[in-house]
Write a protein that binds this DNA or RNA. Structure first.
Lengths: 145, 145
DNA sequence: CCATCTTACTTGTGAAATGCAAGTTAAAAT
DNA sequence: ATTTTAACTTGCATTTCACAAGTAAGATGG
């Protein structure tokens, strides 16, 4: 069973409010997207991602995501400078949230990445299964690359 | 067909980024929740909602939600002071995003409102159909209450 | 019909979060 | 031994936020 924190002082007990307090900012979900969909695992990769997050903000968000149990860090065994960031189960479980946010924006805003959108539209469940599968593989070879 | 704006200057064309730029803050989704699930339609109701949004922030968020085509306003015919806020199709289409955010938080955080959570868990599609149905009814009697 | 109340805001101000540039430290590469 | 690289931190100006108070137009009660 998944561990549930004894929630700190939240504005309310509503589960939507909990999600918003944890993920409701302009960067957290993009970092998770980079991990889940693009396979990014290092600070440098996140920094160089297309939306150009500031380095202090990135450090802060990674710290918070770790604190919330959404990602974890481990040392890279072959390079003492590197840290490898991984999604936890809790992080991977955000995949359905992403999927719906992507579909919503694709349906109502003028966006790019139609390849991803069509992939999701074609078979949502299959897409989710693939994301989970891909990540399960990664966890095994955690120090690879 | 849904109208798509020729997107202003976004940080990137990624649909997830679009969603995050529009909805990624601590209040917007809660306002939409209050409309979608609690049937709130006036400034005063939003102000008095449990999480206690500040009045200037509420005014700002309502303005932005209107600008993004997620909600609309109309005058209350029976009370000249009142404005009635309504969800547009674009706003109602956020229901699946909500649903997944609620399920995620309910599964990984210590949250309340288990009645809502169980309702969603029992049959997600039925829940979504009901939300859409309920709103369709409301649009008809827009000045009621 | 006039004072009071209500609704939907705006304004002011201090505190916190954000963005940008530059600096730091330990480890790796040359 | 010197230069690079990775993962940050620090400082500072700007923006956003929260809280309190104020306002204007419409409704309500006597």
């Amino acid at each position: 069973m998944p561990k549930k924190k004894p929630s700190p002082k939240r504005r309310s007990g509503c589960p939507l409010n909990a999600s918003v307090e944890i993920l409701g900012d302009r960067w957290s979900l993009l970092i998770i997207r980079d991990m889940m969909l693009r396979g990014f695992r290092s600070y440098k990769e996140f920094l160089e991602s297309y939306e150009r997050i500031a380095t202090n903000i990135l450090a802060d968000r990674l710290r918070k995501l770790v604190a919330h149990g959404i990602i974890t860090t481990e040392q890279d065994l072959s390079d003492g400078r590197k840290l490898i960031y991984s999604l936890t189960r809790k992080g991977i479980d955000l995949a359905p949230v992403f999927t719906e946010m992507v579909l919503w924006a694709a349906g109502h805003e003028d966006t790019g990445n139609q390849a991803l959108v069509r992939l999701i539209q074609k078979d949502k469940e299959k897409f989710l299964a693939e994301v989970r599968q891909r990540w399960a593989e990664k966890r095994v070879r955690s120090t690879a690359n």
